[in-house]
């Protein structure tokens, strides 16, 4: 286990790009669960939630605006995608990418 440590706020709000370099949205949430092992338990991130507002995406820089648009839900064209941890390449945490094809 290498000891790279990153603060959550470095990841949040980052654009995630797929293998083709296209943005699929911004990291909005990290869902974690418990992993048991012989010397105790750890909380590990299982899934990333990546949200996009489609054409309104450029507006969503501020947290307040983002939350407002989400409250409006479908009206704002909000879509959320769940990405399992295996698929998220955090080699460069500031530029997260989708792994694989």
């Amino acid at each position: 286990m290498s000891g790279r440590e990153v603060r959550l706020e470095r990841l949040v709000g980052r654009r995630v790009r797929d293998a083709g370099g296209r943005s699929i949205g911004r990291i909005e949430e990290l869902i974690c669960g418990i992993e048991l092992h012989e010397h105790g338990r750890d909380y590990v991130v299982r899934e990333f939630r990546v949200g996009t507002f489609g054409r309104l995406d450029a507006l969503s820089g501020s947290k307040l605006v983002r939350e407002l648009l989400k409250t409006l839900g479908r009206v704002s064209g909000y879509r959320e995608r769940r990405v399992g941890w295996q698929l998220m390449d955090l080699g460069d945490p500031v530029h997260p990418r989708l792994r694989g094809d």
């Binding site: 440590e5 706020e9 991130v45």
Partner: peptide, 27 residues
């Protein structure tokens, strides 16, 4: 803030909760 420990081939581990002015200021 929250510190995540990243490693290859394992899910990111939630290492610690950080509290304090300097951490807050960075955000």
């Amino acid at each position: 803030s929250i510190a995540l420990a990243l490693s290859d081939n394992a899910p990111p581990r939630v290492a610690a909760i950080l509290v304090g002015g300097p951490v807050r200021a960075q955000r």
